[in-house]
């Protein structure tokens, strides 16, 4: 079982991202789960979303999770949310930031000694999609770090997931995924 926790602000697309990932993974014959913690909080509030991926039907409905991957799509949450909660020894962090990895770890000492990857999903989504919706670039970064799917396969699968959108938006998302895939390090 592969488990992923997203840290996001409500409205940044973590739920859509988690759902999009689930859609892609389900098409490969695997079993998926995508859910989020909702309070009564409105847009802008810190929230978490989750994915589980397995070769077997997923029976676990606990919200508690020891994630394999932590995806932080809002830069500020690295400092204000408990992003290392319930981590494992080998939990991997992919964090949206404009800082270098060294600068980031220095600014948030909790991340010291962890497997940390950085990518500026905010800037990438602004440049490509034109809005601060960092979810699709984060998926591109996840593909690179996890090796879950080849870039081209993932892009094709995401095109299907996004098929109800206009071509322009699909193209922008593809560009975002590709850039994040290439830039994450």
């Amino acid at each position: 079982m592969l488990e992923i926790r997203w840290h996001s602000r409500a409205g940044q697309g973590a739920v859509t991202g988690a759902k999009g990932l689930a859609d892609v993974v389900a098409n490969t014959g695997k079993y998926v789960q995508a859910f989020a913690f909702y309070g009564s909080a409105k847009r802008g509030a810190a929230m978490t979303a989750y994915n589980r991926v397995d070769d077997q039907p997923i029976l676990n409905h606990e919200k508690f999770m020891r994630p394999d991957y932590v995806l932080v799509i809002d830069p500020g949450l690295t400092y204000t949310a408990d992003i290392t909660a319930n981590e494992k020894e080998d939990t991997k962090y992919i964090i949206t930031t404009h800082l270098s990895k060294e600068e980031l770890v220095k600014s948030q000492p909790k991340l010291e000694g962890k497997e940390v990857y950085v990518v500026d999903c905010m800037q990438i989504s602004l440049d490509t999609i034109g809005r601060a919706i960092p979810n699709t670039p984060m998926l591109g970064a996840l593909m690179k770090v996890s090796g879950m799917f080849e870039l081209d396969y993932f892009k094709d699968a995401m095109k299907k997931v996004l098929s109800k959108f206009p071509q322009k938006i699909i193209d922008a998302n593809m560009a975002a995924i590709e850039r994040a895939y290439n830039e994450v390090h």
Partner: peptide, 12 residues
């Protein structure tokens, strides 16, 4: 069906 745990949890 369970609120959120089923209603808002996407699965196959």
């Amino acid at each position: 069906q369970d609120g959120f745990i089923c209603s808002h949890t996407a699965q196959n």
